[in-house]
Simulated scan of single mutants.
Amino acid sequence: MRFYLTLFLVAAFCACAKSENLPKDSVETTFTNPVWNGADPWMVKQGDDYIYCFSRNNGIAVSSSKLMTKREPAKTIWKAPSTGWNSNCVWAPEIHFIDGHWYVYYAAGVSGPPFIHQRTGVLRSINDDVYSEYEDMGMLNTGDNPEDSSKNVWAIDMTVLEHNDKLYAIWSGWLEQRDTDATPQHLFIQEMENPYTLKGKRVLLSSPEESWETGGPLNLNEGPQVLKHDDQVFIIYSCRESWLKEYRQGMLQLKDSGADPLDPESWIKTGPVFEGNDSVHGVGHVSFVKSPDGTEDWIIYHTKKTTEPGWDRDVRMQPFTWNADGTPEFGEAVKAGKPLKRPSGEVEIEQN
């Protein structure tokens, strides 16, 4: 009897402790931007988990959380080797779950500055656990000669598009290899044989030509991200200079679901579709996720901390909606400190 009484008391104590640790009326229902320091935010929802991938200490780290607005401690899944093409300057990794494995696409180089050696590499998890070991699948040949990797060309910010049972790589690159990083950047697309091998030849998809994506010291198209809604496909990308307050987002829209993504004429360019204001500066390099209950769409992005040139940035998030024609309506970038309602379903997760 004493044993059962002890069990009862322990159980009662644990229940009370849980209730006292997190009473429902103490859970915050709002949050404010920025949510944390950093740049090039890549967040993806897999099941009920939000996977966040980022570069740190010349390596790549990931974290998994049930909450969008509260990042859990991260684990380093890969460190750059001491020598070789990818030994330095690890930039803007993205993680994608494809056919039972996690694939990480990242940019790296031998040295920098100047950042003239950047190429794109791929890592693959050994199983479906995001925290598993990763194998280095090597460098992707993002040049014009698929048979000659020695003719490879500068490439960063690779993402993938799955469309009509085919896989495509989309990235920011140079038309040809140069000896200065003051070189215009363009968006390219290429079909993939598998998640770590390109197929065929690269296609020039977008160049910085419109008035809203030019005008500064260096014209850039970079940070392409895929956004889908019903049967529509969009590429939201960054333009202008990443170190200036004018950094902003443009959009490519596939004309229809049957159009060939490898044909530049299949895409319609508009912009800017999301940019800074008097309070928010240098809106760039976005990713997209659904709220925990799946009813809301959210944009994750970074901004500059000041108007001065440089790369001191933080990460923010806010919900967005859709126009009657099915295009995204991102609205105005919300200033720091303004309360925002937490993503739908997040409060209930924390309460339980």
Rank of each mutant, 00 (worst) to 15 (best):
T6E: 05
F8W: 10
F13G: 06
F13I: 05
C14G: 07
C14I: 13
D25G: 05
S26M: 11
T32G: 01
P34K: 04
P34W: 06
V35Q: 00
W36I: 03
N37M: 09
A39E: 09
P41V: 05
M43W: 00
K45F: 02
K45E: 01
I51L: 10
I51A: 10
R56D: 07
R56Q: 15
N57G: 10
N58F: 09
G59Y: 06
I60A: 05
V62H: 02
S64L: 09
M68C: 13
K70D: 01
K75L: 09
K75Y: 03
K75W: 05
T76Y: 07
T76Q: 13
T76S: 10
K79V: 03
P81D: 07
W85G: 03
W85K: 11
S87C: 15
N88H: 10
P93W: 00
E94G: 07
I95M: 05
F97L: 11
F97W: 06
I98P: 10
D99A: 15
W102R: 11
V104W: 09
Y105N: 05
A108I: 00
G109L: 06
P114D: 12
P114T: 15
F115M: 11
F115A: 14
R119S: 14
L123F: 04
L123E: 08
R124G: 05
I126S: 07
I126R: 14
D128H: 14
V130N: 04
E133K: 14
Y134L: 14
G138N: 14
M139E: 13
L140C: 09
N141M: 04
N145H: 08
S149W: 01
S150I: 02
S150G: 10
M158S: 14
V160N: 08
N164G: 12
W174T: 04
W174C: 11
L175M: 12
E176A: 14
D179N: 15
D181F: 12
P184E: 09
I189R: 06
Q190W: 02
Y196H: 14
L198R: 07
K201C: 06
K201V: 02
R202M: 08
V203L: 02
V203I: 11
L204P: 00
P208Q: 13
P208G: 13
P208E: 09
W212P: 03
T214H: 08
P217M: 11
N219Q: 13
L220C: 14
L220V: 15
E222H: 02
E222A: 06
P224I: 06
V226S: 03
V226G: 06
H229M: 01
D230H: 12
D230I: 10
D231V: 09
I236S: 07
C239D: 09
R240G: 04
L244H: 10
K245W: 05
E246T: 15
R248C: 15
R248F: 02
M251V: 08
Q253W: 08
P261T: 07
I268A: 13
I268R: 13
I268L: 15
I268W: 00
K269A: 13
F274W: 04
F274L: 05
N277D: 09
V283D: 06
H285V: 01
V286W: 00
V286D: 03
V289D: 00
G294Y: 01
T295G: 04
I299A: 00
T307S: 14
P309K: 14
G310Y: 12
R313D: 07
R316Q: 01
R316T: 01
M317N: 01
W322M: 10
N323I: 01
A324F: 10
A324K: 15
D325I: 04
T327C: 04
G337W: 03
G337L: 04
